[in-house]
Design a protein around this nucleic acid. Structure first.
Lengths: 146, 146
DNA sequence: TTGCGATTGTTAATCATTCTCAATATAAGG
DNA sequence: CCTTATATTGAGAATGATTAACAATCGCAA
């Protein structure tokens, strides 16, 4: 059984909820890729594989996945929420190109240390942080200038 | 004439748009406070001062304010967009308490330097960045523990 | 003052998300 | 293998925020 399946089953059990084929299908689809996803594309992907799952089921699943730590909200793409899964993925952050939409992920421990210091100063106990940089990528800048 | 009025007028002029009493009223209201705002509370605040402005007018104004650099999107509060104005305010970031919703702003040049380095490595030209930390503030933690 | 384009408020439309509900599936206990 | 109580599902209706359409008004330049 896959690592994430085990973890999600445990979470559901703890709440008296059940692991269903629909839920498995959604998880499979989420973990099939490392990129970001939103509810609609997830639904489309499942449908295109022959699943008859309702989009409402996916919407209903999102909070469970978030609370169980399987996924977390990522950056917003044109104002609606996207998510990323948290397995085989260390916490990371995003450079987003505002022209082509390309997203580059990066990781920087140095920043985490600074943040810990800042949180300490303000008496905060942090449990998540998010860093998003918006800009223009090399390719788009080139196109723009020339 | 206030600094921000001058700047917004210039922006509108450059686009062949006009500075109206409604637009002034919205700006006044935005700059009356330093905190975050969303469209609905802005509308309520204006109404409670006797204005008859329509909420559609405010929605229509948001992109103009963003493009002119008067405001920028801030963190999301329960999934709908909030903004902050950019006058008398240096760029800053947020610690948000997930229990009581308190937001502490902080500023850290060191982080900006690190980000510049990272952007350089990826060929990005950054023009905005956003750093949000979610956690529990001292008061709430105290309450929690007993 | 006139005229043209921008702006406004109202109302209707749209879109994502959530809710309702009847039907079905699940897990646990016999 | 049955039974039962509860959780889950899909379909479609309902919601709520945001956007669009439109006719009436306003603001600016000539």
């Amino acid at each position: 059984m896959k690592e994430w399946e085990e973890q999600f089953r445990a979470f559901l059990r703890g709440r008296g909820l059940t692991f269903t084929p629909e839920r498995r299908a959604v998880l499979e689809e989420i973990f099939a890729e490392h990129g970001h996803f939103d509810v609609e594309t997830l639904h489309d992907r499942l449908r295109s594989r022959g699943s008859r799952i309702s989009i409402a089921t996916i919407y209903r699943l999102i909070p469970l996945l978030t609370e169980s730590g399987m996924i977390r909200p990522a950056t917003l793409r044109d104002g609606h929420p996207t998510y990323e899964h948290l397995f085989g993925h260390r916490p990371h952050h995003h450079l987003t190109c505002v022209r082509c939409g390309k997203v580059v992920e990066f990781r920087q421990e140095e920043i985490e240390k600074i943040l810990d210091k800042i949180c300490g100063r303000h008496g905060f106990s942090p449990f998540d942080y998010r860093l998003g940089v918006r800009g223009v990528c090399a390719a788009c800048r080139k196109e723009e200038t020339g």
